[in-house]
C-alpha cells in the first residue's frame, strides 16, 4: 500500500512541472521517501502535498537539516491527519550557499524549526518571515552543526 502511495506522490510531483523533478523515490523503513533538488522544491509542490485530496499531508512533523560533507539536505517529515500516512521529503542543496524554499507560508510549524536549522546549519530559507538565530546569540560566528565547524573551546571557557 505504501509503495502505491510512493508512486502516486512521485507522479503527482512530476506532473506539476512536466519533467523528472523527483531524483529518487524509495521506501525508507516502510515509509515512502522522495528526494529532490532544492530548485525543484517549490511552494507549489508543498501546497499540492498538503491540499491534494488523496495525499493531504497537512501535518509537518519535523524538519531536519543534515550536513553530508559534499552537500546538505533538509528532510521534511509529513503526516496526514486525514489519511493517516507518512512521507519523507529529502531536499538536497549544495554546500556553498545552501538554500531551500521556506515552508513557513504554508505550515506555521516550519517557523521555529527552519529558524533552528538556519541557526545551527546555516541553510537559508527564502520566504521565511523572520529568519533570525533562535538558539545562539545574534552575533555568534559560524554554524555549529556543520561538520567543519571548529569549537573554540577557549572562547566558551572550556579550556
Amino acid at each position: 500500500m505504501n509503495e502505491e502511495l510512493l508512486d502516486m506522490i512521485t507522479n503527482k510531483i512530476n506532473q506539476l512541472t512536466d519533467e523528472e523533478t523527483v531524483t529518487e523515490a524509495k521506501m525508507n523503513f516502510h515509509k515512502p521517501m522522495i528526494i529532490l533538488p532544492a530548485d525543484k522544491w517549490t511552494l507549489t509542490a508543498a501546497k499540492m502535498l498538503r491540499d491534494d485530496e488523496d495525499l493531504r499531508f497537512d501535518f509537518l512533523t519535523c524538519i531536519t537539516g543534515v550536513d553530508y560533507e559534499e552537500h546538505m539536505e533538509v528532510v521534511y517529515n509529513f503526516y496526514s491527519t486525514v489519511h493517516d500516512h507518512y512521507l519523507y521529503v529529502k531536499v538536497t542543496t549544495p554546500r556553498e550557499e545552501p538554500s531551500v524554499q521556506s515552508l513557513d507560508p504554508l505550515f506555521k510549524s516550519a517557523d521555529y524549526m527552519e529558524r533552528e536549522i538556519y541557526d545551527l546549519l546555516g541553510i537559508d530559507f527564502p520566504g521565511h518571515w523572520n529568519l533570525r538565530r533562535i538558539m545562539l546569540d545574534d552575533d555568534w560566528e559560524g554554524h555549529p552543526l556543520r561538520k567543519d565547524y571548529i569549537t573554540d573551546k577557549k572562547a566558551m571557557g572550556l579550556d
Partner: peptide, 30 residues
C-alpha cells in the same frame, strides 16, 4: 541509513531523526 522515529511523550510527539554512516558515532541526531 536514516530513520525518523516517533513516540508520544507527555508534551506531545517526540521524534528522533537518526542518520548513521556505519561508524560507531552517529552522523546526525535530530
Amino acid at each position: 541509513g536514516e530513520v525518523y522515529t516517533r513516540a508520544e511523550a507527555s508534551k506531545g510527539e517526540i521524534g528522533v531523526y537518526a542518520v548513521s554512516n556505519g561508524k560507531n558515532k552517529p552522523h546526525r541526531i535530530k
